[in-house]
Design a protein around this nucleic acid. Structure first.
Length: 181
DNA sequence: CTACGGATTTTCT
DNA sequence: GAAAATCCGTAGT
């Protein structure tokens, strides 16, 4: 999904972001995954749905995180979208994140608008309303991006120290930008 | 740039 | 009742 765009139509306006960082959550054998051990709870039920379903959950009392379910029905795996870059609806996204249009926030904040999983959901107005949504929908979908020819870096997943040995798995993926000359 | 504390409520034990 | 797939502001190097 790196380089693809996530689009959410809100009040008739497209809010869109190109995905720059992801993490894989690999199902019943992955201690970091909510479905580890085959757990069925009200929250994890959506993970068992077919690939292409949105899995959005609430965490830390104040943030939503957005995932894409990836496998056939009954196999509870998902990819967390960890970071992205706004490509459409900048003002609406900035208002949701900072309370002001894009041009009125500091450059520092413009560059870090969507560089976290909670920030992405806040900026694109993704909440439990969109949980379990089909990502081939009219209001929420993925599409091809414009980025091309990038390299993919990998690393450990963030914020899952409780996962024991699985915390070391290289399941974090990100676009390697080769600036410098 | 890193390091810290506080926010705040769902979720599962 | 504890922990959580986080973020922000502040302070320090």
């Amino acid at each position: 999904m790196l380089g693809k765009q996530l689009v959410h139509i809100v009040d008739g306006e497209a809010l869109a972001a190109e995905i720059t960082e992801t993490e894989a959550y690999a199902g019943v054998n992955d201690r970091a995954c909510h479905s580890y051990g085959g757990r069925h709870t009200p929250r994890t039920e959506v993970m068992y749905r077919p690939g292409g379903t949105a899995y959005i959950y609430f965490i830390y009392g104040m943030h939503y995180l957005f995932n894409v379910v990836t496998e056939p029905e009954g196999v509870p795996c998902a990819v967390l979208i960890r970071s992205a870059r706004a490509v459409a609806g900048h003002d609406a996204i900035a208002r949701r994140r900072a309370g002001r249009p894009y041009g009125e926030i500091p450059e520092r904040r413009q560059r870090s608008l969507l560089d976290g999983p909670g920030k992405l959901c806040a900026g694109l107005a993704l909440t439990k309303e969109q949980n379990a949504a089909d990502l081939l929908g009219d209001a929420l979908y993925l599409r091809e991006g414009t980025a091309g020819g990038f390299e993919i870096g990998t690393g450990q997943r963030i914020g899952i120290d409780y996962a024991g040995e699985d915390a070391a798995l290289p399941y974090r993926f990100f676009i390697r930008y080769s600036h410098r000359t």
